[in-house]
């Protein structure tokens, strides 16, 4: 090999060695298309993620993550989201050493096999009208961007945390898997009064409740006549009689605009 070429070659090798690892992390999942890794990733995904994102990745208590690539997220970006979580949301961090780099890459390799085209949410809906509907139908129980009731969960970031399908099902059909801290409960006190609300905490001897008038209060079970867990959510079901299909489209459009609330910004 002539000297010149050799020098050139070795320079390339050296610079490749220097930038190689960084580049590697930035570009591609090293386990993509590796069948063993994909299987391992499926197992890891089911254990760690499926409760929230669903076995099919379409989202339950978390967003649809089959569309992350088609909406422009990079492997590295996704890796970092999983490693660090999304602070102040339900999306937890998967920290080392419990989750190794390999674990995360393998789960992403599996997720990639579920990758779907960009969301096909119908373009229908008028968010402005949705916001109005929210104020009349929902705000008694839900806060959004700093205003509203407290019986139900704060929905200020529900647009990033739930898919449209999940929101639609929740509003139209209700759910038996109550969000923790919002399970329906009724206490009948010693004098026969009933207190209805959602359960904040419970042990063998007491229960802590936010009642329908947003009073937070503890009750001792041995001093109450009855403490009953409800079967139906404290949130009413909104059938087509209460909410037309086109109003539902508007409401969903509005909910999807809810992508986080910064309390340091002054409200009007």
């Amino acid at each position: 090999m002539p000297a010149m070429t050799w020098r050139l070659f070795s320079t390339v090798v050296v610079s490749w060695a220097l930038i190689g690892p960084a580049l590697h992390a930035q570009t591609r999942n090293p386990y993509e298309d590796n069948p063993d890794a994909i299987l391992a990733g499926m197992g890891g995904y089911r254990v760690r993620c499926a409760d929230c994102h669903g076995t099919d990745g379409r989202g339950v208590r978390g967003p649809d993550i089959t569309t992350v690539w088609s909406t422009g997220r990079s492997d590295e970006g996704l890796f970092n989201t999983i490693r660090r979580g999304v602070p102040n949301t339900e999306m937890p961090a998967f920290a080392a050493p419990r989750a190794s780099d390999r674990d995360i890459w393998q789960m992403l390799a599996y997720l990639k096999t579920l990758a779907a085209p960009a969301p096909t949410d119908p373009p229908r809906g008028n968010a402005e009208n949705g916001a109005k509907l929210f104020r009349t139908l929902c705000a008694a129980c839900h806060k959004a961007n700093g205003t509203g009731g407290r019986l139900g969960p704060d929905l200020s970031r529900i647009g990033t945390g739930r898919s449209r399908d999940v929101l639609l099902a929740r509003i139209r059909r209700g759910s038996e898997d109550f969000r923790a801290g919002f399970e329906p409960v009724t206490v009948t006190t010693a004098d026969g009064a009933t207190v209805q609300g959602v359960k904040k905490n419970e042990d063998l001897f007491s229960v802590q409740i936010m009642d329908n008038r947003e009073r937070i209060q503890g009750y001792e079970k041995d001093k109450a006549k009855a403490v009953e867990n409800g079967k139906k959510s404290a949130m009413p079901v909104f059938g087509p009689d209460r909410l037309s299909d086109s109003d539902l489209d508007d409401l969903l459009k509005y909910l999807q605009t809810l992508r986080g609330f910064d309390p340091t910004v002054k409200q009007q």
Binding site: A40, G43, R46, V47, D177
Partner: peptide, 23 residues
């Protein structure tokens, strides 16, 4: 749930875990 693990000294080597059944 289980999958084939790779052994690396000092790293977790469990090849699986469990998922809670819905309450």
């Amino acid at each position: 749930i289980s999958w084939k693990p790779t052994y690396t000294p000092g790293e977790r080597f469990t090849g699986g875990s469990g998922q809670r059944v819905k309450p």
